[in-house]
């Protein structure tokens, strides 16, 4: 699995319970200015910000949402990463090797 990190200049914030990703001016044209995301995406974003690798991300999701099925956990993570990648909110942080979800 490729490794990603959150793009510098994208800020996770909360307004009246709504989670938002807001891009700084330098990213105009590259990322959307404001995107509303759900709570689980905000959880994953915070984990990515702190440098979590794929295994840790899976473990964190399993614990936070009490999901036992590893395929379900992976699908949630893959969908989140794909959505964030498509909006250029993530930067590649190199390749992981030997991880369970490669």
């Amino acid at each position: 699995m490729e490794r990603y990190k959150t793009r510098a200049g994208v800020v996770l914030t909360c307004v009246c319970g709504e989670w938002l990703l807001v891009s700084a001016a330098a990213l105009r044209g590259l990322c959307p200015f404001v995107t509303v995301i759900n709570e689980s995406s905000a959880f994953l974003w915070k984990r990515l910000q702190s440098g979590t690798d794929a295994e840790e991300l899976e473990r964190a999701v399993r614990e936070e949402y009490e999901i036992e099925d590893p395929e379900t956990v992976r699908s949630v993570i893959v969908a989140f990463l794909q959505q964030m990648r498509e909006m250029n909110y993530l930067e590649e942080a190199g390749k992981e090797t030997g991880k369970a979800n490669d």
Partner: peptide, 21 residues
């Protein structure tokens, strides 16, 4: 705002949160 820095983004969002909450 130019929304150039994280501090500026957070300050605007705090104001909006105050307005709407």
């Amino acid at each position: 705002s130019e929304y150039e820095t994280e501090d500026q983004i957070r300050a605007v969002c705090a104001l909006m949160d105050g307005m709407l909450s």
